[in-house]
Nucleic acid binder design. Structure first.
Lengths: 335, 335
DNA sequence: TTGAAAGCGCTAACAG
DNA sequence: CTGTTAGCGCTTTCAA
């Protein structure tokens, strides 16, 4: 390439990296040469990029170990529109910077104790952002390895890593207040989004209003809860529903399953059972009835993660900072 | 690292790449050193990987240019569970090979004529698989640049690139036969999945049965068709519906929109209008009524793409080969 | 089987 | 402003 254009490699490099101090005429020549040759710089060779300008960033997706390839619908995260939304949000920030996004799935069991987790090896001097479950060792490992990282939720164990999260309590309160306004007593119940119930202790305990005795409000969820939509059944929902007036569900996919279960059981929503969901993806609108949801600004959160990550990459000594987003209530039909 | 273990870098390299000709004892030492140091090879430095063993592969996502960040639900591909399913399928093959997946969004307008498309620059000696629209110049560009690539559908312009696709005609036939069996006349109508209507000429023309005069079957779709789910409206559906007995819709997201539109118009599904959809994601089961769909094995198709891509990377001179998958009909409630 | 040495394709520091 | 000269961190001959 350099020879083709009749200049030194250095000059070509300068042109490509748009260093200002290049004679316009030479620049011209080089650019034409590039166009003619169809030359594409081999980014892999820019070894010295890091840590200021790694070419790519990893999105680490934690998925349950028990996922099955041939069972796509049980395949939570990858079936969930979530992945796409997060990707879109992150790319909105990354793309203009010319940074690529590498998707790295990670079974919870992944890092074979003592070793650097695969995702770390993967990103090496790169860096990675990651969702976390409360018992997830990954955050600590990343921190120990000095790999710039941003988490998509508050880590279970305190780790000096930046994270982005949604104000769970506010979300629970919004849901509770709405249900109360609809005439449902919620006193004394732990009201928290179910998918997040993995965290130890009540997250969104919301003592609002006075409770009746017959009426109950339940949070449905927990780690084992799958939206087994195909069967049209939802074991936990089925088991609990008869005694419940309202439900607060962790995400739209679960809600779809719950709605089906309720329907199968002959319960009307929202007349018999009110349903509020924590999520708000396109699925919320597709459901019948459409879901009343506590909405988290997923795209913006992902964008913020990317932004934070970039900051940490540029300044490795930067202090961890977390950004908490406020959820909002979107009232539709289910409650 | 080399000094830490008291050996040459070459040996470390050999251990890491598990070259057999290494003294077990030395190997032992090096491995311990690695474990102790927490050493992680900097994959970026393996300049010579390509073309046989590029560290990563790109998944190029073509998205409409008119997408808006703050309008997530209109944001087709990234809202679509599709992305996750494709990702999952591809990773199933890539992951065991230790190859990463880079997600690269690409506006249709992207490649500024004459230049290597951004995604090409991105993958450079890497390689990339890509969806294609009939007028998409990308396939040709990739081929011209000699970048190994596999397409997710038959390219509009013939290009000697491998692709994976689903047998559209069979899909259309399955849908038609089902509708006919339900008593709907379909004679003389172009029955083809709408999203694919971008392809020139009828794809799945299916002259089955004898047609009545009042009854019609329409394919709904086209490039401009968005599942504007929030508005609960679907302009094209609304415009066409009154005169239609059945619909064959390109994908689940569109179908959700259509179902809403039909409901808003007071039409019952499937009693008044039968709906068959070409897709089958989790959304199909979430809908009310659940969608009768022509199912494409998305995960398997993606896995096959990855497999083909790997073959092309290993042998750049390999002849293009396309793999066509057979769709199947999943009868649920909408028809 | 191992180490020394020569790159890989690119960027950065340094003269001119 | 530009070319020359060192590397980057790793792999890969090529002798030993």
């Amino acid at each position: 390439m350099a020879e083709f254009a009749g200049v030194s490699r250095a000059t070509v490099s300068r042109v490509i990296n748009s260093v200002p101090t290049v004679d316009p005429e030479l620049r011209q020549i080089v650019e034409q040469a590039i166009a003619a040759t169809g030359y594409v710089p081999q980014s892999r060779a820019r070894v010295r990029w890091s840590p200021g300008r790694t070419g790519s960033v990893a999105l680490v997706i934690s998925e349950p170990d028990d996922r099955h390839f041939d069972d796509p619908f049980l395949n939570r995260i990858f079936t969930d529109p979530f992945l796409g939304r997060i990707t879109a949000g992150a790319l909105e920030v990354l793309r203009p910077e010319g940074i690529h996004l590498v998707i790295i799935p990670r079974g919870y069991a992944d890092p074979p104790a003592g070793r650097a987790p695969t995702c770390a090896r993967a990103t090496s001097t790169g860096s990675c952002s990651s969702p976390a479950t409360w018992a997830d060792p990954l955050p600590k490992q990343l921190h120990d390895l000095g790999i710039p990282a941003v988490l998509s939720a508050r880590p279970g164990q305190p780790v000096p890593l930046s994270y982005v999260d949604v104000e769970q309590q506010t979300g629970a309160r919004l849901a509770a207040e709405h249900l109360v306004a609809r005439g449902l007593p919620t006193a004394g119940h732990d009201l928290r989004p179910a998918g997040h119930a993995r965290e130890p202790g009540p997250v969104g305990r919301v003592p609002v209003g006075a409770g009746g005795t017959r009426s109950r409000l339940r949070a449905v969820g927990g780690g084992k809860l799958h939206p087994d939509q195909r069967g049209g059944r939802h074991p936990q929902v089925a088991r609990r529903t008869p005694e419940v007036d309202g439900m607060f569900i962790a995400n739209d996919l679960m809600a779809e399953g719950a709605l089906q279960a309720l329907r199968d059981l002959g319960h009307r929503v929202p007349e018999d059972v009110a349903v509020v969901v924590f999520d708000d993806s396109s699925a919320a609108v597709a459901c019948r009835p459409q879901l009343t949801t506590v909405r988290q600004p997923v795209e913006e959160m992902a964008a913020e993660m990317a932004r934070l990550l970039l900051l940490h990459i540029m300044d490795p000594d930067r202090r961890a900072r977390s950004v908490i987003f406020q959820p909002s209530l979107v009232v539709r039909q289910s409650a």
